[in-house]
């Protein structure tokens, strides 16, 4: 592998790092709950991308046996299955947390995390 293809091969991981850091910085520096949830969704997206990118095998095809070429190497689609599951879980938790934010806004009249502290100490 020459220098260029190393970069290409690791491009998904660079993308993962960038998206993950974006999400993390939102989590650290933003105070609005909706934005914080966006940050979490970004982190989730980064992790899903990471999972999928670990499943890539050079010169392998998807394991669909119908009309598969003779002697082709098939990739085991475990991580793709994992990613689908984790996307579903992510959607469920985002939906739930957004509905919580809605209820919090209705009662507290704010989405600023610094002011949502009915319990402390």
């Amino acid at each position: 592998m020459n220098g260029g293809s190393v970069i290409i091969a690791h491009a998904p991981l660079f993308a993962v790092a960038v998206i993950f850091l974006l999400g993390l910085s939102i989590l650290f520096f933003k105070r609005n709950l909706i934005k914080i949830l966006m940050g979490i969704t970004l982190i989730e997206a980064a992790i899903n991308l990471f999972l999928v990118s670990t499943g890539y095998r050079m010169d392998a095809i998807a394991p669909i046996f119908t009309n598969a070429p003779e002697g082709a190497v098939m990739a085991l689609p475990t991580v793709q299955a994992l990613t689908l599951t984790s996307i579903v879980i992510g959607v469920a938790s985002s939906a739930m947390m957004l509905s919580f934010v809605m209820l919090i806004y209705r009662h507290y009249k704010t989405t600023n995390v610094n002011r949502i502290r009915g319990m402390k100490g």
């Binding site: 989590l27 105070r31 914080i36 949502i116 009915g118 319990m119 100490g121």
Partner: peptide, 14 residues
Amino acid sequence: LVPLHTGIMTDYVL
């Protein structure tokens, strides 16, 4: 000790 328990959820994550 008590002020560490800020009640702010991003602090918990930090």
